[in-house]
Design a protein around this nucleic acid. Structure first.
Lengths: 346, 346
DNA sequence: ACTTTCTCTGGCAGCGTTTTCATGCCGTGA
DNA sequence: TCACGGCATGAAAACGCTGCCAGAGAAAGT
């Protein structure tokens, strides 16, 4: 006496499709997922599915197939420009491959924050770790989670790592300044704070020092001023530099965002960039062009895409990554108007 | 002869927990989810769960409970600042309440883009629509999806809507200029492009016109220049304005991002802000302070949080929203250094 | 002391798919 | 012509968990 389920308000299930197509549920399932089914039956099934607007219930698919078709992305701060770009680029690739993305947001970049290993395992098939999502050791711990993982940024020798060579990028920036004649160069570096990435920060410092050394510039003139990462930190660092006894002729900022803060302070102080002082950044932030900031660009979206592709490979083949897996993408110098030769120095 | 499942490599299930705690699976389930269980048993169960590092498999929970504990967020462009802020703020609230977030990214803001209704229904319990995720009618179509939904931004009379009063915000900006003596005021507006929000754009134009009218300023002097939304569009619009015969003494930009582009053009043109021309924006973008831009602030994170809270309410009570549900949050004028009285006019 | 009511408990039936597995069928080679 | 491999098919068994239900005690009321 109860009406057939398909007549009631319930969402259609695969059995409804099967019944309408006059096949068994197994066949319907196979037909829908592209399994081996005779052409006429496949046709009937697809037609029935379309007619009922059938969409498989994810939870059921996941339970029975044992795969979630979801990948987790672990980031320290979901708002920061770099992470946003990486994540959305990765998301597009993964989504096109039929995967959903679950974002694990570190909240406010608190150190040591990590999603529960168990939660991760119970919700996703694999994860993308975006560097500094945790301290380096925490990151490695997560990698041992028995969940397939790739890493964006962070230490260079990790398998499945996608990133750039921060050290050589920083060196490029400094060489650019040196070639123009600068000798007194300061660096504005991040120290703490949301979005701060210890690994890339120290690599960039190393590149700074290395390039100066290679140019035969005494280490003494290489002042590195550290402040909390971000625009405000950049401003604070610049103020510190302005307060010093002898102004550098050029400043290399660890990130464009810190450079922005520096530019703001310089403008307020009445100094003109680049006439009075040159400023160079790192990242090629979307606002860098607006500030006319010369900078070292890193391919941000490409890193996200590369990570996604690597992950798909990893998921596809089933096995673990071959040890050499991973990509290091190139950085490139973008010359804009915030750098010129030092005045009256040569 | 097969070893008990708990000894093999398999992840522990609730039956393993139950066995270890010497209770039935039902009791284990109740204990873990905080149901009515006697203290000693609850204790045994929790201890067993901890010992086994048990985490319920999401797919199974979802299938059997019929709820996904996931909410979808539909945005036109996942990268744009406003959406990022809204989404992460909402995510934190929802996550704290035990919900996962699934982001449906419009890709590149293509008009008419919408996630498949069926997909949505099969993956989430409810959705947050962020305005202009679709044309207004598409948005309403999505609302009729039979999935509980709240909306951020968009038309004001929609139930379950969270947002600000764009019209009065824009009027505030213009009044500020008028009070300082400006009479020739131009508006830079968005027309198309990724991240462009038709509804709020036209409300802001209306506010602009209304405030001028209220001040008795002839409509003729109220030039509105439309360009694709964003920094580049703002620059293009400013160039158009500079090319005109008589310069306005002040410019109101529909969004801070467009104002940034305008400021860049003005600087390159050798005009000084605010001495030669005043600029006021809308949004209080995170970079607005860096540009020293006077602007009308809207509480972005608050909108995300409010949407999340509203959604939780909606999910909690089971029923549909009461018709009056929704919040309109206040905007506020942030006075910085990009506006001053017009020179030589009074 | 005897109901009645309430609280806690375990058994069991799903939840909607996918995935064996066994079957029947067809074509192919001997 | 007969046996055999391969393929398409449907029945039924998972997948791991949460409802629902009925029963067992304990508490409370008469």
């Amino acid at each position: 006496m109860t009406p057939p389920s398909v007549l009631r308000g319930r969402r259609p299930g695969i059995v409804d499709v099967a019944r309408l197509a006059q096949v068994s549920p197994s066949t319907a399932s196979r037909a829908i997922r592209g399994g081996a089914v005779s052409p006429d039956r496949r046709d009937r099934v697809l037609r029935a599915a379309a007619q009922l607007a059938y969409v498989p219930l994810q939870a059921a698919v996941r339970l029975s197939s044992g795969r979630t078709r979801t990948v987790g992305v672990v980031v320290p701060t979901a708002e920061r420009w770099f992470f946003v770009e990486v994540v959305t680029a990765a998301a597009r690739v993964l989504r096109a491959a039929g995967y959903d993305l679950l974002i694990f947001d570190g909240g406010h970049g608190e150190p040591g924050w990590l999603p529960e290993a168990g939660e991760l395992r119970s919700k996703v098939d694999a994860v993308v770790l975006v560097a500094s999502a945790a301290s380096d050791d925490g990151m490695l711990a997560l990698r041992d989670l028995a969940v397939p993982a790739v890493v964006v940024g962070g230490p260079r020798d990790v398998p499945g790592r996608v990133g750039v060579d921060d050290e050589s990028g920083a060196a490029t920036a400094v060489r650019h300044l040196v070639l123009l004649g600068h000798r007194r160069i300061a660096m504005i570096a991040g120290g703490t704070g949301a979005g701060f990435d210890r690994t890339s920060s120290s690599a960039r410092r190393a590149g700074f020092r290395g390039a100066l050394e290679a140019a035969g510039i005494p280490a003494g003139s290489a002042a590195i001023v550290s402040r909390p990462w971000g625009v405000a930190g950049g401003a604070a660092a610049m103020e510190e530099i302005l307060g010093g006894d002898r102004l550098p002729t050029a400043v290399f900022a660890e990130s464009d965002e810190m450079a922005f803060g520096a530019l703001q302070v310089l403008r307020r102080a009445g100094l003109e960039v680049p006439r009075d002082i040159s400023v160079i950044g790192f990242d090629n932030h979307e606002m860098a062009a607006v500030f006319d900031l010369t900078t070292v660009a890193q391919p941000v979206a490409d890193q996200g895409r590369a990570a996604a592709v690597l992950l798909l490979e990893l998921l596809g083949q089933g096995g673990p990554l071959h040890p050499g897996a991973g990509v290091t993408l190139p950085t490139s110098l973008i010359v804009r108007g915030s750098v010129c030769p030092p005045k009256g120095e040569l």
